[in-house]
Amino acid sequence: MHPFQYQRTETADQAVAAVAQDPAGTFIAGGTSHVDLMKEGVLHPSLLVDVSGLPFKQITAHEGGVRIGAGVSNTAAATSADIRQRYPAVSEALLAGASTQIRNMASMGGNPLQRTRCPYFRDPTQACNKREPGSGCAAIGGYNHVHALFGASAACVATHPSDLAVALSALDARVQTLGPDGPRTIAFPDLHRLPGDQPHRDTVLAHGELITSIDLPAFSGRSHYLKVRERASYAYALVSCAVALEMNGSTIGRARVALGAVASKPWRVTAAEALLAGQVPTEPLFRAAADAAFADARPLEHNAYKIPMGRNLMVRALLETNGLQPLQGPAGTAFAASVGGVAGQFAVPR
């Protein structure tokens, strides 16, 4: 590990000022992703400003919705009754990710900022434009089993690994930040960037800009998150899907659908959303929407399987959100989110 300075601050303003003045400075909250990357030689910040002591630890009612402080742990958010009941997709996404120990440490502000699981990013001897701009992309032409179908560039085909981010995108959450130029609000779907020719920039956040809360807007529909992974627990998604569905009588008022693990950001499928609006929900409709969602998919050598898998998953997520098919487990739990369930005689323990 490279030598670095470590600093705790009393206020968010001090934290922002401290990071802003050091071009190689960064915030650290739970450290569940960042510290690993420092040990692997991927990141070498000169300054870590610890924001875990800042007073962003509340979940409060806010403008008819819920404001989640950036310092709230993933566990606290996932198990909050308010979130579990009103925004089950958020609880499901959180609980279907990582492990209990990691969720206890990881913060809500930090989770959406975790870096890609592209294996080439994590090995400093490999070419990676995200880690080292201009070095190339080893995943293109390499082992790209977990890589992007959408929005990739010649410089980068990495995906974003956060489950939470997919749910927040479908719910059109808003991110409150404090930066060197003061506070601002970012619509969640605008937080992450496509790689273009600057894949080292994951988000639109400026250097020294700190997430202070995530706001879930008022929502009276149903939301749900589904995830396919290579083992039943503690694995990143191969494909995931979040749905936020509002009915208008017997037709769909508004459906928002975000796909996970297929792009460098949660992938909102707006064409499919448009196709769903105003329609009577049926399986053929959902299948048509899924076909539309994946029409522009551009598979690489090893990830074409994500297209049929993703289509099937999106159809199921819509069916289950709408109630045409039962959830696989209680809403707001990992069992509802985990396709295939767990090993043993019952997919959901009885």
Binding site: R117, D123, R231, A232, A235
Partner: peptide, 16 residues
Amino acid sequence: VVRNLADYHVPSMADT
């Protein structure tokens, strides 16, 4: 390419 126990999967309790 895969060099850690988050991405090299061994069975979890939920797989067993």
